[in-house]
Computed example of a mutant assay.
Amino acid sequence: MERRPLADDFVSRVLEVVHGIPEGRVMSYGDVAAAIGSRAARGVGQVMAYYGSDAPWWRVVRASGHPAVDHESRALEYYRAEGTPLLWSASGVFRVDLRRARHTP
């Protein structure tokens, strides 16, 4: 069986898209998948969980605009530093304002 070069594998393609997201902007897991011609949003999540620690992981959010589960406070630090537009609920929960912050490569 022929092995595709590393630069063409799913992990590398996901990370390439994530590294291309500018400061203050975000993409959803589904947006990243679509950018590489896939529908595997959950696969993007797996890549970020296993290989995304050196990537700007906070720039990949859930479809609702919420950051990755259990990484909210750390993501908020990055969002504030980068000036990412946020929306706040009355209960103090935030999410990224996708209307203003969504990046399209």
Rank of each mutant, 00 (worst) to 15 (best):
F94W: 13
R59L: 04
Y50W: 14
A75G: 07
A90T: 09
V60L: 00
Q46R: 15
W57C: 03
L98C: 05
S73F: 07
M27F: 00
A55N: 04
P56Q: 09
E72N: 08
V69R: 15
R99Q: 14
S91F: 08
V11D: 02
A55C: 03
D54H: 14
V61R: 01
L87N: 05
M48H: 04
S53V: 14
T104R: 15
A90W: 10
F94C: 07
E2G: 09
V61I: 12
L6K: 12
H71M: 14
R100K: 15
G45C: 03
R102F: 05
V44R: 01
E16S: 15
H71D: 14
R80I: 09
A81D: 14
V44C: 06
S89M: 07
G24P: 10
R13F: 00
Y78H: 15
M48G: 05
R74D: 15
V47D: 01
E16I: 04
T84C: 08
R25P: 11
V96D: 08
F10C: 04
G24C: 07
S73Q: 12
R39H: 13
R13K: 15
G83R: 03
V17H: 05
R100L: 13
R99W: 04
A90Q: 14
S12A: 14
G83D: 12
V18Q: 01
S89K: 08
P22C: 07
A49C: 06
R3L: 12
W58N: 04
P105N: 11
H19F: 15
L76K: 02
R100P: 08
A63R: 15
R3Q: 10
Y78V: 05
Y79Q: 03
R39M: 11
Y50L: 13
H71N: 14
V61E: 11
R102K: 13
R62K: 12
W57A: 07
S91L: 11
D97Y: 03
L76M: 09
R59I: 04
E82W: 06
V60S: 00
V60G: 01
G43I: 11
E16H: 14
V18D: 02
I21K: 05
R42N: 12
